[in-house]
Design a protein around this nucleic acid. Sequence first.
RNA 1: UCCUCAGUAGCUCAAUGGUAGAGCAUUCGGCUGUUAACCGAAGGGUUGUAGGUUCGAGUCCUACCUGAGGAGCCA
Length: 436
Amino acid sequence: MKQTYIKEISRHLGQEITIKGWLYNKRSSGKLGFLEIRDGSGLIQGVVSKKDVSEQTWENTEKVTQESSITVIGIPREHPKHPGVYELDISDLTVHQLAQDYPITPKEHGVEYLMDHRHLWLRSRRQHAILKVRHEIIKAVRDFFDDDGFTLCDTPIFTPAACEGTTNLFEVQYFDEKAYLTQSGQLYNEATAAAFGKVYCFGPTFRAEKSKTRRHLTEFWMVEPEVAYAKLDDIMDLAEKFIGHIVGRVLENRKEELIILERDTALLEKAMPPFPRLQYDDAVKMLQQAHTEGKVENLFELGGDFGSPDETYISSQYDKPVMVHRYPAAVKAFYMEPDPQRPDLALCVDVLAPEGYGEIIGGGERASSLELLLDRIKEHELPEEAFDWYLDLRKYGSVPHAGFGMGIERCVSWVCGLEHVRETIPFPRMLNRLKP
RNA sequence: UCCUCAGUAGCUCAAUGGUAGAGCAUUCGGCUGUUAACCGAAGGGUUGUAGGUUCGAGUCCUACCUGAGGAGCCA
């Protein structure tokens, strides 16, 4: 018989259907068995009554174990006690493979154990919900740009040199020479933007930083739009519209998942444009004020980059994402365009997510002058020959242009209200985690 | 790299320096409306590793290993 997916069960009430899936959990009460069945699309409770089924099916009901693969035939109907909840009256149960001692039991487990069993942990309700939200966010990202005239131009993962120089890169052998895994598609995006006008790239990014925090992965996915002729204000408008679109889509299409995750959606509903915009200088004043009032420990020095506690304090002052712009050029990457009014400041922006989730977007206007870039490359002690193609972009029709990058995992973590980004990607790569 | 915390049954955790226990999982038995079902029984241990202190160490000390959280750095 044709397979029916659990999420479509309401269309088959009273009809005999076949569900193919796995046993999520089992309870029993004498000659009555309750089987929680999952098939990837959803979860449903099946009921087996000894007096109504064959001896074989009853025997299978008694012996079937957690996560055994099964096929059941039955008739869906409403739950007698819970209106709106569906249940399956099972008439036949066959077991494909009997799972023995499934490692993830219905009781709680530690982080290390769950991470060691990530390949199985993905089957649990909560992980399923998170990855469904991830999928929704990625789809929303693509739709947002595709519907706004952007062209997807993916950038390479093997790169010959550092994009930004400062952070640690993963080095790999590339035939007879050394190559590095990309830490940003940024520079290549500038080339494709000059060809297509509005572009984005979306792919994995690698950072060999020895960071062990709830916000870090060594391999994460980043989406980076780049727009020719765009200025800082244009890119800030784009960023807030973009985040509003993502959050809106998740609220609209992933209600059930947000309930499973116990996410306070009232907080998400506030994350709609316009977002507050704060100059770096004013953010520093805010931090210094907070210090004199005893609300933050460290006295922040003007000119430095914000640390994680600083970002947390700034974002805690708002109930929606906040855009901090015009940081000192000295603390930012070499390719940032200086503010014509204040050349010591870079025309850049960081978007800080609410609830202490920190920076989810970083971006800004790129330097369009060849002379300035040559100076900056020298200042940062970067190898000029590695950037010859990049400098060509300033020789042949250079224009003002801007873009930003958003880390998908940090965004998913915030939208889901998670404690750690490691749950936002199927197989996270971290400082101490390369397996499974 | 630095700081803090942790490591005991398959899993999650107890155990004042004095005979290593419970819940879940597993196996067996009971229950016709269960929801991390419940009730009864059984099996299950080189307390991360190596030293040390002590009559006696899971517990105290030292080193190392592994993990977690944080700092720095970042999305």
